[in-house]
Design a protein around this nucleic acid. Sequence first.
DNA 1: CTAATAAATAATCAACAAAATATTCATTAT
DNA 2: ATAATGAATATTTTGTTGATTATTTATTAG
Lengths: 201, 201
Amino acid sequence: MLFLMQVAVEIKQQIIDVADIRFRRYGFGKTTMWEIAKDCRMSAANLYRYFENKEEIGVEIALKCLHNKEEVGRAVLRRKDLNAEQRLKAFFLEILRYTHQLCEKDLHLFELVAFISEEHPEVVQGHQASLRSFIAEILAEGNRSGEFEVIDIVTTAATILFATVHFYYPPLVMMKNRGLAELEDAEDAVITLLVQGLTKR
Amino acid sequence: MLFLMQVAVEIKQQIIDVADIRFRRYGFGKTTMWEIAKDCRMSAANLYRYFENKEEIGVEIALKCLHNKEEVGRAVLRRKDLNAEQRLKAFFLEILRYTHQLCEKDLHLFELVAFISEEHPEVVQGHQASLRSFIAEILAEGNRSGEFEVIDIVTTAATILFATVHFYYPPLVMMKNRGLAELEDAEDAVITLLVQGLTKR
DNA sequence: CTAATAAATAATCAACAAAATATTCATTAT
DNA sequence: ATAATGAATATTTTGTTGATTATTTATTAG
């Protein structure tokens, strides 16, 4: 592989931007390398100086997409007006809403992310790791404020991610015969239960 | 549609039985109506006196399969040696193990259930309703014993089902790069968390 | 009437050719 | 050297045709 100059980074970015637009509008499969190249005013062959192959372009866009989603969650972490329980609820509510509207609006992008997630497990694993670390932050803060009493924060964050898969995993979010409102109610109920537990006090 | 006599019920059962064997061994798609008919010593056309179409035979078998799974859960409800938390854990552990081994051993059956679940949401909804009612029973018992303090049992059962989808939903159970042992650990952790909650006591 | 069938039709699948597309390579330009 | 291209090759998709299979209909048997 080649050593790419500084300017190459900008060209890579242009390719990603151009491909993003086409992937959203027409889908990954219906977009050709030739079309992407023409949008960048270059030959198709030249694309291969910047990306291994078409799939790698898809990976970049999927990553960008998941990164945006993470930003939505991160924004909740910065809010000052919430206690730990409220923050946990708001966190998953935002993630749920973002996931839902993304998949609803951009069906093609949903398919791309699903496809890439299938072929590149490391992509989704990285995304989950981000979500886990956000949850861990919320738990730590809950411990500090005396609201929570979580011994093993890392493990508990992983457990919470397991229990909330309905709210961030696109195939479940988009499951048939179920509206966003129902999911929002379920999200509130799940977090409430996780916070309070079943045990008599 | 015809009014079927008593003997017809037995013929239907025979059709289901022979189709079950072939679907397991060769899959839904690779089994022909002619083969099913020959196994029953009848013509293919005659099958249509008992089922609308091939898919309806598949539905019956998927139902049987989910029913078996429910029986595994029901068996846990009858055990006398468990408190509510242990029962909840054992319930999902059995469901998880059954789902996993079924999908692992009988790939064809897994595909059939997945396909039917896609086309006939009412099938999976019925299954979930069964699971929910089992969970509700466990919660009620936990309330009786003073172990739990659950106000709205029905809603809480639904919430628990949401949070445990990883352990009964075949596509999640069978997700790549994850062993049964990991899932069993996660199951224990999720139930423990649901029982105890995050809140400081 | 019910039970069943063979024959007819409709829908789906499989194989294969043709076309489109992805990717590589040899070459040119800077 | 890096950057880019057109042409060559490899892979994938698409379209078409024949064969298989699902389903319906007309008919027969009891």
